[in-house]
């Protein structure tokens, strides 16, 4: 049963306006306890539900944030038309989390591309709020164009922050872009991201992951040090409706976070 929440505000993230962040507050009762990496089903009566990763961190207060791409499906299209004050149902928190226990005390390397960056943002905020529990925090984040980068004000802050190292890149800059141009795998290679005492969390389009993994392998990263978060068509989110499995694992309850060591034991069917 979806829990009623109220849409507090909407932030248009990209110049194409195809990604918006929705800040939601529970109508009755306290906010969920959740951890970075988890997701929820966003429910709009009359349209349905969509599984969306939680972009906020539990360290951030009462609001829950979801950054949603308008795929022009029933639910995301309707969501994108909502104005503050609207009612949205939430079911969750669902799924497992980024490997927080593994990460504790280690160097945290985040590699993100495009709009898959959302639950990585949750993790980054979580690490920054619990800074002493983790060693170095390194973030590589790339998008197609400057306008496609999410969380721009925050990225600007992080670029200046001594708490983390941020390598921002875009495939192709525009007249305002003074930063780096190039693909994520190239940046990972150029920066020689070190595997020592580190865990990497990689999320992005399949093509980015495909070309980044061999680079990481060359740098000495092991599959059990690299985690990703998978997407799959889902309905129930609780392991019953049967469609999100990869072999015997269900992305909704056994995932969405898997290490590449785990994935290597599963059929390549995702």
């Amino acid at each position: 049963m979806p829990v009623p929440a109220t849409l507090e505000r909407v932030v248009v993230e990209t110049t194409a306006a195809d990604l918006k962040s929705f800040y939601l507050k529970f109508k009755d009762g306290p906010r969920w306890d959740y951890l970075p990496g988890q997701f929820a089903e966003l429910s709009l009566y009359g349209y349905g539900e969509s599984p969306i990763g939680i972009a906020s961190s539990p360290t951030e207060g009462e609001e829950l944030t979801f950054t949603v791409f308008n795929t022009e499906g029933k639910v995301t299209r309707a969501l994108h038309r909502l104005a503050p004050g609207a009612a949205v149902g939430l079911r969750g928190p669902l799924g497992n989390t980024w490997p927080l226990e593994e990460l504790r005390g280690k160097n945290v390397t985040v590699i993100g591309g495009g709009f898959a960056f959302t639950t990585q943002r949750s993790l980054i905020k979580y690490v920054l709020a619990n800074r002493k529990d983790f060693a170095d925090l390194t973030v590589v984040y790339g998008a197609r164009s400057p306008g496609a980068l999410l969380y721009k004000p925050e990225l600007a802050e992080w670029e200046k922050s001594p708490e983390l190292t941020l390598h921002l890149t875009v495939d192709k800059g525009d007249e305002t872009w003074t930063g780096r141009e190039g693909f994520v795998p190239t940046v990972v290679e150029e920066e020689k991201l070190p595997p020592d005492d580190a865990i990497a969390l990689i999320c992005g389009p399949p093509i980015m992951i495909k070309f980044t993994l061999p680079v990481m392998d060359k740098l000495g990263w092991k599959p059990e040090q690299i985690y990703t978060s998978l997407e799959m068509r889902m309905k129930c989110g609780v392991g019953m409706c049967g469609r999100c499995n990869i072999g015997p694992k269900y992305v909704c309850v056994d995932g969405p976070v898997f290490s590449f060591a785990e994935l290597s034991k599963l059929p390549q069917e995702y």
């Binding site: 009566y45 009359g46 349209y47 349905g48 539900e49 309905k235 129930c236 019953m240 409706c241 049967g242 469609r243």
Partner: peptide, 12 residues
């Protein structure tokens, strides 16, 4: 035992 879920309705 797999199932799909759909909202059916009109005018809210």
């Amino acid at each position: 035992h797999c199932f799909d879920v759909v909202d059916e309705g009109k005018h809210g």
